[in-house]
Simulated assay, not measured.
Amino acid sequence: MSTIYPNLLRKVKGVSQKRERVELDDGDFIDLDWSYSAVSNSKKLTVIIHGLEGNGQRQYMLGLARHLNHNGWDSAAINLRNCSGEVNRLYRSYNAGASEDLDRIIKHILTTYTYTNISICGFSLGGNIMLKYLGEGRSLASEIKTAAAISVPCDLYDSLSEINKPKNYIYQQRFINHLKAKLYDRQIQFSDTLTTSDIRACKSLMDIDNLYTSKAHGYENAMEYYSKCSSRQFLKHIEVPSLILNAKNDSFLGDLCYPFDEAKKNPNLFLETPDYGGHVGFYLPNRVYYNELRTLNFFEQPN
């Protein structure tokens, strides 16, 4: 219920979004959904990244955007490739390690706008992308001040193993059906690379990652994809103050997704594990949920 109620029954109102299409160097595109605070020419921006099969209109995305907007922050919600309602142009799509796309978006924002205080918040898969981006050793812009990862699967295979358990059967099937539907759309465009029979044969998330996700993004198979893209291995290198908020009752996360040792060793990493919250839930009996309160507090007063 910690996961299902907030994600299926919450209705966030009062967020007005404006879409911007960012053309990428490889010929593809990513759509950003902007929402603004009442502060004229705010210099504070949060870039928000959704989770698996999400988009900029998911309630958890809108809830955070609304809370930020009400407190003087603009927000830019990234719709990862193939997640904005239009099939992307290239065979590749998005994946849990697509930090290069986040890098492109950050650079676009820095060269197009005048924000001096940029924070990043990633939910679930988006949190893994963000942490990987921060810890890969690239030179980060001084405008990036803080970051928050909510319900993040720091070890992708560990999380997959947890999702495969009977308690998550409904969610697992929902993810599989959504991903296969997108693959069927992609097959029409790339029939020489992907066949309907191959898609039909996929019975699990790992099957999909072996057939498509890994191959389309340059990995040999699903296990190599999980190994190279899991953010846990990059946490020790993060230099931007970063919050990881993973609830203890998150049914999608195994033990390896709670990086206690890395947080102890890295003074820039703040791991918080409340007893409740589910997966991207964190319900509170009012308009603002706990993860939204905590994220804004961390961005404005990092510990």
Results as ranks from 00 to 15, higher is better:
Ser2Pro: 02
Ser2Lys: 09
Ile4Arg: 06
Asn7Gly: 07
Ser16Cys: 01
Lys18Val: 13
Lys18Asn: 11
Val22Lys: 09
Gly27Leu: 10
Ser35Asp: 10
Val39His: 13
Ser42Met: 11
Val47Ile: 15
Glu53Leu: 01
Glu53Arg: 02
Asn55Ala: 01
Gly56Met: 03
Gln57Pro: 00
Arg58Met: 03
Leu68Pro: 02
Leu68Asn: 07
His70Tyr: 00
Asn71Glu: 09
Gly72Asp: 09
Gly72Lys: 11
Trp73Pro: 07
Trp73Val: 08
Ala76Val: 13
Ile78Lys: 10
Asn79Ser: 04
Cys83Gln: 01
Val87Arg: 13
Asn88Met: 02
Tyr91Ala: 02
Asn95Val: 02
Ser99Arg: 13
Leu102Trp: 11
Arg104Leu: 08
Ile106Trp: 07
Lys107Phe: 00
Ile109Ser: 04
Ile109Val: 15
Tyr113His: 14
Tyr113Ile: 05
Tyr113Ser: 02
Thr114His: 13
Thr116Met: 01
Thr116Lys: 12
Asn117Val: 06
Asn117Glu: 15
Ile118Arg: 08
Ile118His: 04
Ser119Asn: 15
Ser119Cys: 14
Ile120Cys: 07
Leu125Ala: 14
Asn128Cys: 12
Met130Asp: 03
Met130Val: 09
Leu131Ser: 14
Lys132Leu: 11
Tyr133Glu: 06
Gly135Arg: 10
Thr146Phe: 03
Ala147Gly: 11
Val152Ile: 13
Cys154Gly: 13
Cys154His: 12
Cys154Ser: 15
Ser161Lys: 14
Ile163Lys: 06
Gln173Gly: 00
Phe175His: 00
Ile176Tyr: 00
Ile176Asn: 00
His178Ile: 03
His178Met: 04
Lys180Pro: 02
Leu183Lys: 05
Gln187Ser: 08
Gln187Ala: 13
Ile188Ala: 12
Ile188Trp: 00
Ile188Glu: 13
Gln189Arg: 12
Thr196Pro: 00
Thr196His: 11
Ser197Asp: 14
Ile199Gln: 02
Ser204Val: 01
Asp207Met: 08
Ile208Met: 06
Asp209His: 09
Asn210Val: 06
Thr213Leu: 05
Glu224Arg: 12
Tyr225Lys: 06
Ser231Ile: 05
Arg232Gly: 01
Lys236Gly: 09
Ile238Val: 14
Ile238Gln: 06
Ile238Trp: 03
Val240Ala: 01
Ile244Met: 10
Ala247Ile: 10
Ala247Gln: 09
Asn249Val: 10
Ser251Ile: 15
Leu253Cys: 09
Asp255Trp: 05
Leu256Lys: 15
Leu256Met: 14
Cys257Met: 10
Pro259Trp: 12
Ala263Ile: 08
Lys264Cys: 04
Leu271Gln: 12
Gly281Met: 04
Leu284His: 04
Asn291Ile: 02
Glu292Asp: 07
Thr295Gln: 05
Leu296Gly: 10
Asn297Cys: 04
Phe299Tyr: 14
